[in-house]
Structures are given as C-alpha cells and as structure tokens.
C-alpha cells in the first residue's frame, strides 16, 4: 500500500461533523489552506508600498489587525511585533503575494517575506456562547469594551499558542490560528469545552 501524498489535506480533515454538534450556541468551522505570509519590515518607509499591494494599511497599534480588500482580494494584516506582520489572504495566493510583497519592501535588503501558509490552520468561531467557550482556557479579557473589533492577540488557549483575531466583537466572531501540529489537540479541547452548551436553546 502506498500513501497518497498528492491530495492536499488539512490538519482538521474529518472534524466538520464534530464541530457541527456545537451549534447553535457555538459555530465552529475550519477555514483551510488560507495564504499566510510573515512580513518583517526593516524600512518603515516602505509601509505605503505594502499598503498598495494589499489594499490595507499595516496596523500601527500593537495587538490589532486591519482588514479590507485590494488587488489580491480580501486580506487581513495582523500586528505580530514592532516590525512584524502576518498577512492572511484567500487560498492559493501565497506565491503571488510573496513576490509582490518582496518587491514592495525593496527586495531582501528591505526585510523578509516568508510563506508560512502551512504553519497554521484557521478556525472560525462565532455564536452566542463563543466568548464563554474561549474563557474556559484563555486569560485574555474578550469583553467588547476591552477587546473591540480589530483586536489581534498572540496568547495561550488551553496551553497552546494561538493568534486570536476579533473579527467582530458583538455579535462575537473570532478567528483562531493554531499551529498545524497542535490543531487536533485544540479541536478536541474546543469540542470538549463546548459540550456544556450543546443542548442550550438559543
């Protein structure tokens, strides 16, 4: 028997039906294969050129992200560090974006653009109990008054490193980015932590 290595598989292949059991209190779905690029910007003067490529400004405030649409469709750009950003786009755009961004920052002297699409997978989490579910294992205060729409934090959820994007504070809609090798652990934790909300009428 030979292993099928030609078919692309996401780390959470086969979890759809278990996620669906959490509805309607919690809606959890994987958004597989999104394009993800890490951008390290040495020359802040190049930020405007990057914005033109993406159609979105680089976030200036720590722990925030900007979203919008540009020449490469809908994108999210998250602040990861003082000179470090994560670009999220539709699946299949990593090669195009990599070369476009590298040109925008002025080549390898201007910083670094790295395709990290395979590093993490994306989970979309929403529903009336989504915030309660995260509170079981995340110390960040996700109340809309503290973490409004546009918040992006790198932190721990159930001891696992995640990037959490607040796409909408009210009604709650989150994106969770988790490393591929931790994805099944986190999926199992989320399904378990959400068990108590399953039977709840909404």
């Amino acid at each position: 028997m030979t292993a099928d290595i030609t078919t692309r598989r996401t780390p959470l292949d086969g979890w759809t039906s278990r996620f669906a059991e959490l509805a309607p209190a919690v809606r959890l779905t994987e958004r597989p294969f999104r394009s993800q690029l890490t951008l390290r910007l040495r020359d802040a003067g190049r930020a405007a050129a990057v914005s033109r490529v993406l159609g979105v400004d680089l976030p200036e405030t720590p722990c925030t992200f900007n979203r919008g649409a540009g020449p490469h469709g809908p994108v999210e750009v998250a602040w990861l560090g003082p000179d470090e950003y994560l670009v999220l786009a539709q699946p299949g755009l990593q090669r195009t974006l990599e070369s476009a961004l590298r040109e925008a920052i002025g080549g390898t002297q201007g910083g670094a653009v790295v395709d990290v699409s395979a590093q993490r997978t994306t989970l979309a989490l929403s529903g009336p109990r989504a915030r309660d579910l995260l509170a079981h294992g995340c110390a960040i205060d996700l109340h809309p008054s503290v973490s409004p729409t546009g918040t992006c934090v790198q932190t721990l959820l159930a001891q696992t490193g995640i990037i959490l994007l607040v796409r909408d504070a009210d009604p709650a809609e989150f994106l969770l980015l988790v490393r591929a090798s931790f994805a099944r652990y986190l999926a199992a934790w989320l399904v378990d932590a959400g068990a108590e909300y399953r039977e709840e009428p909404v």
């Binding site: 720590p62 722990c63 560090g81 003082p82 110390a139 934090v153 790198q154 932190t155 721990l156």
Partner: peptide
C-alpha cells in the same frame, strides 16, 4: 512594553 499586561506563563 508592547502587548500590555499578560499572565506570567507567557
């Protein structure tokens, strides 16, 4: 200095 107060385990 960038992210604000976080738990010590981070």
């Amino acid at each position: 200095p960038w992210c604000g107060p976080r738990e010590e385990v981070e």
